[in-house]
């Protein structure tokens, strides 16, 4: 099977701004791939190049084995796309927009369309101008899911949705994954990617800085401990792989490298523990490490 998406050294410049600066991205068929990065890191630009809406300034890009700029229409017959900021025709109702968008790639499956409208709790008779941001997003999502595709591209698809609707979205992604489709999901919401994606590419300033499965990437992070213990800060800090020990109220807080967790637990048990919380490494921390930002809360 051909690789679903493959870019090598992708460059896109707007005037003097380098939006993409040698981006590598590989998405295998049938995988749900998270495309993570902060706002302005080049996620949307990459997707627009993959859709042939923008022309790459350098490097190469292949989508479903075809050149996205030259063979845009042939590729588009096989994919569904939901932009990050959906804008609708003010005078068309949601139902009309869904039918228009699906007709232009072959027509919606009527049963699927009806089920999606009810699952997403979307009123199709409302006019485009009267929808909220979240409902505009739902119109685009229903249009994308109402006809099967080989490849789904989602640009921050849940940015306007409430948690219940995010759950509906996750279910639909699971469904199309079950049907063998490939999904590229851009996001800066980490929990969403953690729950849905088996592979992740992290992008920053137009470059992919990290790519792999979630478990491959977790080795990069540290586990956070909050412990009420008899051990002193100095004793803990002396252990290999322990970082940033400090006191928070009646507890000690510190981070531990993944491969040093065992010895640290042994030492803690010896010193006595009356309460402990251990937070798994989250993608939040991956970001913080890559962008060198401090936690601000």
């Amino acid at each position: 099977m051909t690789i679903a998406i493959h870019t090598r050294g992708l460059v896109k410049t707007f005037g003097r701004v380098r939006a993409l600066d040698g981006l590598d991205l590989t998405v295998e068929p049938g995988e749900v791939h998270g495309f993570l990065g902060p706002n302005g890191s080049g996620k949307s630009t990459t997707i627009r190049v993959l859709l042939g809406l923008l022309r790459a300034s350098g490097g190469s890009a292949m989508v479903l084995g075809l050149d996205p700029w030259r063979d845009a229409v042939a590729i588009h017959r096989r994919l569904a796309y939901v932009p990050g900021d959906v804008s609708l025709w003010p005078n068309l109702s949601g139902g009309e927009t869904i039918d228009l968008l699906t007709s232009l790639r072959g027509g919606a499956d009527p049963g699927l369309r009806a089920r999606l409208l009810s699952d997403f709790e979307l009123d199709p008779t409302t006019r485009g101008r009267a929808y909220s941001k979240g409902n505009r997003q739902k119109v685009a999502l229903v249009a994308a899911f109402a006809r099967r595709a080989e490849l789904y591209l989602f640009d921050e698809p849940t940015s306007g949705l409430d948690p219940v609707m995010e759950e509906v979205f996750r279910r639909e992604v699971e469904r199309v994954r079950g049907e063998g489709a490939t999904v590229l999901l851009s996001s800066h919401i980490l929990s969403e990617v953690e729950q849905l994606c088996e592979k992740v590419t992290i992008v920053r300033a137009g470059k992919a800085v990290e790519s792999g499965s979630l478990s491959e990437l977790r080795h990069l992070t540290r586990t956070s401990f909050h412990v009420a213990t008899g051990a002193t800060p100095a004793e803990l800090a002396a252990l290999p792989g322990v970082h940033d020990v400090h006191r928070e109220a009646d507890r000690l807080a510190f981070d531990v490298d993944t491969d040093a967790i065992g010895p640290v637990l042994t030492a803690l048990t010896a010193a006595g523990v009356s309460a402990m919380t251990v937070a798994p490494p989250s993608l939040e921390e991956l970001f913080l490490r890559h962008y060198g930002d401090r936690v601000e809360s």
Binding site: S93, G95, E96, D99, L100, S103, T125, T126, R127, A130
Partner: peptide
Amino acid sequence: ERSGPAHAGVGLRSMLGLAARL
């Protein structure tokens, strides 16, 4: 606000139809 139809008519299911409608 008046509501619209839940389905697009046949006339709206193409690019020409969209342009004409707008």
